[in-house]
């Protein structure tokens, strides 16, 4: 069944590549969803069935819905796609890609230098996972709960409608600029 693993890996790679190259946000989101599903497949094949489940329900389900919701809310469509198209020139993406390639090459060298290692993954059941979570990692779970709590409060606070608020230094700067502008106009 190695073939399933390689297929899923290839799908994840290609979908991810599409995510970072699409101009339209909705297209990118759909490709990301595909990539996440492929990830779920990989997890399952690695014997982590519960992780695969979470990947689908939370990632591909909840988080992606949030993204799509925001994209729809802001009505990002053709204009954004046009802007991205204008922006994404080889001149722009060449440098970062080379950098990332170098990083990956180093990673490759490090991984390959450690020697071959093949195995048959054993299934780690949700039961074992739950026991580990609520025994050794209890504090981690509590911290994660606090983090989520903070995120909810923070999101509620940040998301409120507010007028444009500038720091006073920036405001002064802006006023100065406006004055300058007026002077040049006059």
């Amino acid at each position: 069944m190695e073939i399933a693993f390689y297929v899923a890996g290839t799908v994840a790679l290609v979908a991810t590549l599409m995510v970072i190259t699409r101009h339209n946000p909705v297209h990118a989101l759909l490709y990301l969803n595909v990539s996440l599903l492929a990830h779920a497949m990989l997890f399952y094949l690695l014997g982590a069935s519960f992780a695969a489940l979470l990947e689908i329900i939370i990632y591909a389900g909840a988080i992606m819905v949030l993204f799509i919701f925001v994209v729809m809310l802001l009505n990002l469509g053709k204009e954004t796609a046009e802007q991205e198209r204008k922006w994404l020139k080889p001149k722009v993406w060449m440098g970062p890609t080379v950098l990332a390639a170098v990083l990956f090459a180093e990673f490759l060298a490090l991984v390959l230098s450690s020697g071959q290692d093949a195995y048959s993954p054993a299934v780690v059941s949700p039961r074992e996972l739950a026991v580990a979570l609520y025994r050794e990692y209890l504090i981690g779970v509590e911290l994660a709960a606090m983090l989520l709590m903070a995120a909810v409060v923070g999101a509620a606070h940040i998301g409120r409608h507010k007028k444009l608020v500038l720091h006073r230094f920036l405001r002064e700067e802006k006023e100065k600029e406006e004055e300058k502008h007026e002077e040049t106009v006059l």
């Binding site: 970062p96 950098l99 990332a100 990083l103 180093e106 990673f107 060298a109 490090l110």
Partner: peptide
């Protein structure tokens, strides 16, 4: 982010 990536490259490079 470029700075972060270059830093990661340097650290991995040292390890190699």
């Amino acid at each position: 982010i470029m700075g972060l990536v270059v830093g990661a490259i340097l650290i991995l490079g040292i390890q190699i």
